[in-house]
Structure formats: C-alpha cells, structure tokens
Amino acid sequence: MTTWISQAAAAEIVGCNATTIEHAVAVGRIAHRPRRGPRPSLDRASVEAFAKTWQAEQARRAERRAARPARDPEPTGPPPTDDVWLDSPTTAALLGWTPTYVARLADHDRLPGIRHGRRWWFRRADVERYAAARAFALRFKTA
C-alpha cells in the first residue's frame, strides 16, 4: 500500500522549498498521481528517495563552494590616487545627463574615466574640462 503526501509535507521531508518539489515531480524524480481536489498526490517512498539524493547533492555543492578560492572583495571607493574622483551619478548630475549615459560615454572613450570595481569613476578636472568644451561647442553652434 502506497502512502500519499502533499507537496508541503514533501518539502518538509526533503528540506527544500515547494518549487523544488514541483520541479522534481515535473522531471520524474518523484512519483505522483493525478490531482483530484485537495487530496495528497506524491508517493512517500519516492519523496524519501529524492530526499537522500537531494541532501547528497547539497553536500557536494557545499564542498565545491568551500573548495573555491576566496575572491577579493569588490572595491567600492574611488581609485587610490591623490586626484578628486566623481562617480557616475555625481558626474551625471554635473553634466545634466543620466548615470547610464555617462557610463556609456566612458565605455566608448568619449568621456575619460576608469572602472574601479563595478563603478565608473571620473577625475573632477576631466569632467569640468568636458563640461566647458560642451558649453563652448553649444555656444558657437547656436550663434
């Protein structure tokens, strides 16, 4: 005689969330019967067998994670020099653009800047020079 359990009970037995149980049912790792109303639809024996493989898989993942070399933390501040550095949002506010557009200009070498970590950083002098050149060009364009 087969004992049937619900997905919530299966998730509790395995030690995972209900989405993992649904996926295991969908790929055929857990036996089930067609649902008819609120009755439990998962085979307890197949859930327990899946629990063993799931726990072994999680242990292997933890071992691989522990064996990975530690990564250096992502730098969050400006580059370590004596210059005054501005990040993308500050540069964008000074120039009147969006941070995305400023990062795109820097990525295409139209605005001098460097990537430090995940952020773009710009020397204040370069930003002021760029703003002055832009103002100069706009003044003679309208005249």
Rank of each mutant, 00 (worst) to 15 (best):
T76M: 10
W120F: 05
T19C: 01
L94V: 14
P99V: 03
G96H: 10
S41E: 04
T81Q: 01
D126Q: 00
T91Y: 03
R129C: 15
D126N: 06
V102D: 07
I13W: 00
D43Y: 01
A18M: 14
D109R: 13
P99E: 05
D82V: 10
R118T: 15
P38Q: 13
A49I: 04
T19D: 12
A49H: 03
D126Y: 03
P38G: 10
S46V: 05
T90Q: 09
V84P: 00
T19K: 14
L42K: 05
S46I: 06
S6I: 01
A49E: 10
R64Y: 11
S88G: 14
A26K: 03
T53P: 07
A131K: 14
T100E: 10
Y101K: 15
R129D: 15
L105P: 08
H32F: 03
S41I: 04
E128R: 10
A133G: 15
T76E: 13
D43W: 02
A24T: 00
D87I: 02
M1N: 07
A10M: 06
P34R: 09
A133S: 08
R39W: 01
T20Y: 00
R61M: 08
E22K: 10
F122G: 15
D72C: 08
F140C: 11
P78T: 00
R29Y: 05
K52T: 15
R29G: 07
A106Q: 12
T53I: 05
R29N: 12
P99W: 02
V102M: 05
T19L: 04
I21W: 06
S46P: 11
R123P: 07
T100W: 08
R118H: 13
D72Y: 02
D107L: 11
R119A: 15
W4C: 02
R68F: 08
P73R: 13
F50P: 07
V47M: 02
D43V: 01
I5T: 00
F122Y: 11
T142Y: 11
Q7H: 12
A49D: 08
Y101G: 02
W97T: 15
E63N: 08
A31P: 06
R39E: 13
L94H: 04
A92V: 04
G15V: 02
E128W: 09
S46Q: 03
